[in-house]
Amino acid sequence: MHTINVKISDYQVTKAPIKLKTTGLGSCVGVVVFEPSRHVAAMAHVMLPSSELSRDLTFNLAKYADTALPVMVTELIQSFGVQRQHLKAKIAGGAQMFQFTGKSEALRIGPRNIEAVKDTLKSLEIPVIAEDVGGQNGRTIEFDIEKCQLMIRTIHKGITAI
């Protein structure tokens, strides 16, 4: 079946039976927002927590948690006419790929991404019903919209579903 590949700093909106996939999440976070009864979903591959980090006046909204998720959710609602209060989210990623001893904020990018994604979803009033975040390993994720199932593949622990 057809699968849409979501690139880094991008999001895609679609409906079943199409699947959504993103590969090689490290400190980035993959965010799936979906409407379980209508079988529609959106997936973002968020790279940085906050658009305040941007040093450019014009920037790619899909790169930052605080800007990507609102535009993605709006597009999902407008494309399929779904109700915001029926939306749910599943998230994965936000690893710390390298084990630093220092405490520099820049090195904590994974945990900061997770926090920003959760804060933004909270402000959008979308509950996170499942998550596989943190740790030290990369993840590839694929969302089956029909089953509302998020498959997570890692090279160390094989495939799990949430």
Partner: peptide, 13 residues
């Protein structure tokens, strides 16, 4: 710092 993992997960850092 050594890590063994998917190229995209490593390089995006």
């Amino acid at each position: 710092f050594l890590t063994v993992d998917m190229a995209a997960a490593v390089l995006s850092y």
